[in-house]
Amino acid sequence: MNSLTFKLREKARQILKEGQAEAILAFTEGPTPFKPRLALIKSPEEAERIVWPGFSGLNPLTLWPKIKDIKTAIFATGCISRTLAVLIKEKQLEREEIYVVGVPCPGLLDPQKIPDKPEIKKIDEKEEKIFFETQKETKVFLRRELLRETCLSCRHPSPTLYDEILEGESLTPSKIPFSRVEELEKLSSEERAYWFFEKIVSPCIRCYACRNACPLCYCPQCFVDDSRPQWVGKTRDPIDNLLYHLVRAFHLAGRCVNCGSCEAACPLGLPLQVLNQKLIKEAFENFTYEAGLDLESPLLFDTYDEKDPDDFIVTAKRKTGG
């Protein structure tokens, strides 16, 4: 068994026995090893179902609106704890409502990166190695070969906000956090427009999995559902797809914590996270801002600085050179 799974189960049993929380929101064994499923664990016996999510990039806080009137504990890696911080700042939940167990994150894996997926019976993770047991043989991969793009760009794999923390070693913070964005920035404007249409706008089927999988997209009525005015058309028209993706990314500017839940949920595997990463990069470079690192500092768009860049704004003074 995965050593992290073992640790999580042990901790879950302890929490439920000692009563720091009445329930635990955690991944449990799903239909296949690639598809762990979130559940609300309420008794120490049930804790045996908990697993380390390995291949699921879904952010468990997405289901937070479904949890009511019960003190809940959660296992928080770096991105989950930062999501929590943003949600608390936005008054979506109180700090006291949730008991946070920090987990140093070894990084999550991307099933799309497995070359010719065999019929896998069992997956085992041991530190740097991943074992796939098929009917015939056991294949071994190195963890870094299978890491999600999001995790490869992660700057904060260790939790920033927790009540207690599990022991263990986390991923080294990424030295190339914006590599995917920078690669595209090297291209010309036309090439980028082509990339955007080719990779995101035209294949998107508008299933809204990216929106619903995002823990920070909690609006009761999304802007795409507005009918008066109707900002976005409902069909797969390229212009409407474009508008949807731009506004979706922009609504997460200064809030997105780079958890990659949207990308993991996309049924067509589109690189949606790149748009968010661009905004994260700009916020970091221009405003030295990163979302969800603490509970005190204001969100990016909740504050301003008089010295904010404004050379793109036309003024009379700038025109006359005065």
Binding site: V181, L184, E185, S188, S189, E190, E191, R192, A193, Y194, W195, F196, L242, L246, A249, F250, A253, G254, L275, K278, L279, E282, A283, N286, D308, P309, D310, F312, I313
Partner: peptide, 13 residues
Amino acid sequence: FFMLRKLLEFVGL
């Protein structure tokens, strides 16, 4: 608007 401009520039629009 600064962030919006950066995003539009990025997708080449």
